[in-house]
Design a binder for these strands. Sequence first.
DNA 1: TTGTAAGCGTTATCAC
DNA 2: GTGATAACGCTTACAA
Lengths: 351, 351
Amino acid sequence: MTRDPSAPTTPGASTPATIAQVATAAGVSRATVSRVMNGRATVAPVIAERVRQAVRDLDYTPSTVARSLSLGRTNTVALVVPDLANPMFQQVLRGVTQAAAVDGYRVLVADSAENVDEERLLAIEARMRCDALVLCAPRMPIAQLTELLPRVSPTVVINRDLGALAAPALSIDYASGIKGLMAHLLSLGHTRFLFLGGPGQSASNQERLEGLREVAASHPGITIDTVTCGAAIEDGYAAAEAVLSNGATAVLAFNDLVAVGLLGRLAELEVSVPGRVSVTGFDDIQFARFATPSLTTMSVPQMELGRQAWAQLRELLEGGQPEHAVFFRPRLEVRSSTGPVPDAVGPVPGA
Amino acid sequence: MTRDPSAPTTPGASTPATIAQVATAAGVSRATVSRVMNGRATVAPVIAERVRQAVRDLDYTPSTVARSLSLGRTNTVALVVPDLANPMFQQVLRGVTQAAAVDGYRVLVADSAENVDEERLLAIEARMRCDALVLCAPRMPIAQLTELLPRVSPTVVINRDLGALAAPALSIDYASGIKGLMAHLLSLGHTRFLFLGGPGQSASNQERLEGLREVAASHPGITIDTVTCGAAIEDGYAAAEAVLSNGATAVLAFNDLVAVGLLGRLAELEVSVPGRVSVTGFDDIQFARFATPSLTTMSVPQMELGRQAWAQLRELLEGGQPEHAVFFRPRLEVRSSTGPVPDAVGPVPGA
DNA sequence: TTGTAAGCGTTATCAC
DNA sequence: GTGATAACGCTTACAA
């Protein structure tokens, strides 16, 4: 026994009313109370009303935990992200939360604080409390992911290509995105590029690099340098000196956060953008269009990612088949942070 | 009965192992398994090891839901906010999540989507699944809040002054904050002000207005106009025309979001800030210093609010006394969006 | 239409 | 030290 056995029938007690108390108060069985609470058809109107009265009197709300145990279902999804500070994941959270709420599901958030080692346990633990999991684990080694996924099923993985892995995945086509950015910059005449790389382990960073390699291969006249930078505003801010000393006329930041940080520092240094360098971001976070200059970037459907994640989980929870992996192709948003290469004399060969 | 009664002992079955299966496999009672799982002292080492082996074999993880029911504790807190799109609440979420995680608690988020009517039920429902609640309900009428709080106790309320209400509260001293902003602008020589008000119902908006009234009363020579604007970027963006037609030389936006939106539109219109108008925000969101011009604003300890909220809840959960209400006084961050009044001839009387 | 009782997977009390 | 056993609060066959 766990609770204080005294005063189990005190009505106005601070301890929440139980179904048994309501049953007693209404002079019926607990089964009948349950039926009324769940809108089950066949309960005599008179009885039903008596139950409802007792419910009101006692301020009764069914225990979610007890229901969960009995039903084997919590009506909760977990969202595991590497960093809640990133607007990208915040939007995903919003998307999941909104979509799940429509179906009466709540969302539990877990932030691994970029701690790759903890991520596995965190996911398992979070999944325990929930019916399903949305997992963003861009740096988790594929082997570990392979081992993990069956344990946390049903799960949908966001933001990384799973290959043949047995879980639904929603990904962004980062390679295609970065190529779109390059095409835009090439059309402006740029030939010297600098990529401010994100966390090296991250899957999406690898995809961006792959995209850049392809562009480099097909455009012999250009140079694409890479420096490791990071994924946060501060990283972009700190990268300004590296950018200036590099001599590139176009900088591709890992994401919008990095781009905004860079823009901020360049403004302080009174370096003209795009007069002296063009800058691009990635993600199209809410602030991208309000940065100065407004940021040219690749738009990623962040909330939609969250919504779709829930849609797929819902499907799985209802016993449906896992969907095929979905790739979102980012869309180029040309704004004011990119412009013609300084002293441009014409289009670059092969652009 | 709810589950399929067949194959209750199949080890590798897809259905998670239960404590009973582990007990059987280890040849002990469930009580012993429980003791081992919870690190209870007295279990013979040999037996303990046998149990642990069975746990590994069966991939056993104790059911969180069952534990919760038995213990009467979920190790989860709920956070209810009006709008997850607001960076302010995102930071509060981060703060709560981080602090709670340290104590082994998870966070459930619920976004009322600015729907004041739903907020009450949402809070009750969220509280049901959790041990405690962090409530941000800036627009909920005080009467409703009074009725609600006892039902969702323990709860800490964020971002509004509760007066004598029986719940711990963590608030920002908005009146003092807006006065600080005014003092700064007055010192720059401004005399014509425009306040872009937030949602009228919002408690924090009322406090700002009160602060402005006090300043107006003590500075006869100035005028402070007010227009209702909103709390989102788009609202600030849309307010640019109203700002320009008003003729004020200093604009106090409801929050940073509004200020950033306004700044964005003013830049498009090629209106110099602070050359023609000075603009201030409120909150000091992450992007404030990266806006162009960087935003003068009142800094609010957003994550700290979340951390403290958890600290107080933790205290309450451990049976402690409710803390006194805490007020955070915002700190002025002078950046580049404010400057001397155009054609300033000297300080304003009484500044 | 309503009640009885078993079961969901734990923990904790109390004998042995 | 270890094992029965009774909770925790709910849902749902099945019986009446």
